[in-house]
Amino acid sequence: MPTTSLSHYNLRADREQMEVLKEFYCEYVGLQVGARPALQSFGYWLYAGIEAVLHLSEMRVGEQRQTMLKTSFDHVAFNCTDHPAMLHKLQQAGIAYKMAQIPASEGFPIQHQIFFNDPLGNGIELNFV
């Protein structure tokens, strides 16, 4: 029963924060709001092409998110196109970022990476081959 791919990841927030996250991931990561099954909770599914990769879910009644929780999560990574346009977009918005370049090696082309955080501090990596 091997794993074949990553399906999606989920961020939980109140409705106000969820709207901020939705707008941010659509504007600065290039995801798009798409179809979502008829669920009882409020939320969004954000798509990269035809794949629903990010689910934004409303916190449950009485749920409190632990913001100082120690975790090993660092970032989520997306494959992207148009590196110069993304840099320009982040610069125009004043979003702090770091860049890295992974040199070519056997079986792997040169890869440019941009790292930044969403409005709630979750790490994002954008990869450009």
Rank of each mutant, 00 (worst) to 15 (best):
G121W: 06
G34Q: 02
M68W: 13
N122P: 00
L120K: 04
A38L: 15
H55E: 09
K22W: 02
N117M: 04
L11C: 03
M99T: 15
Y28D: 00
A104P: 10
P103T: 06
S72W: 12
S5F: 10
F108M: 10
Y9K: 03
L87V: 11
A104M: 05
N122A: 05
L54Q: 00
Q91D: 14
A85F: 07
T3R: 12
M99V: 13
R36L: 14
H83E: 14
P37M: 10
V29I: 04
A100F: 12
M99F: 09
F78W: 02
A48N: 04
G49C: 05
P2G: 02
V53K: 01
E106N: 11
Y97T: 03
G94L: 07
S57I: 05
V53C: 06
Q92N: 05
S7F: 13
H8I: 06
E106P: 09
W45Y: 13
G62M: 11
G107P: 13
T3Y: 15
A77G: 09
F115G: 02
I114S: 01
F116Q: 01
Y25K: 00
L6M: 15
A96C: 09
R60C: 14
C80S: 11
F42Y: 13
F116M: 03
F108T: 10
I110E: 14
R36K: 13
G94P: 06
R65N: 14
I114Y: 02
L39I: 12
R36E: 10
H55R: 03
A35R: 15
F42S: 09
T81G: 08
Y47D: 01
A85D: 11
H112D: 10
V53Y: 02
R15V: 12
A52T: 03
K89Y: 03
L87H: 09
E27S: 03
V61N: 15
Y47F: 11
G121K: 05
G30M: 00
Y28G: 00
L39T: 13
G123H: 08
P37F: 13
Y44I: 02
Q101P: 06
A13I: 04
H88W: 07
E58Y: 06
I95T: 03
P119D: 02
N79D: 12
D74R: 12
M18V: 01
F73S: 07
F108C: 09
F128W: 09
Y25M: 00
I110Y: 08
I50L: 11
A77M: 07
A35I: 14
Q64M: 14
E16D: 08
K89E: 03
D82Q: 12
D82K: 08
A77F: 07
H88A: 10
M18N: 00
C80Y: 08
K89Q: 08
L39R: 14
E23N: 03
V29T: 01
P119E: 01
L120Y: 06
H8S: 05
T3D: 13
G107W: 09
W45N: 03
S105P: 05
R12M: 14
N127K: 11
N117V: 07
P109W: 05
V76F: 08
I102P: 04
V29K: 00
V20L: 06
K22C: 06
Q64F: 13
S41A: 15
F73R: 08
H8L: 07
T3L: 15
H8C: 05
L39V: 15
D82L: 07
D14E: 12
V61G: 13
F73C: 06
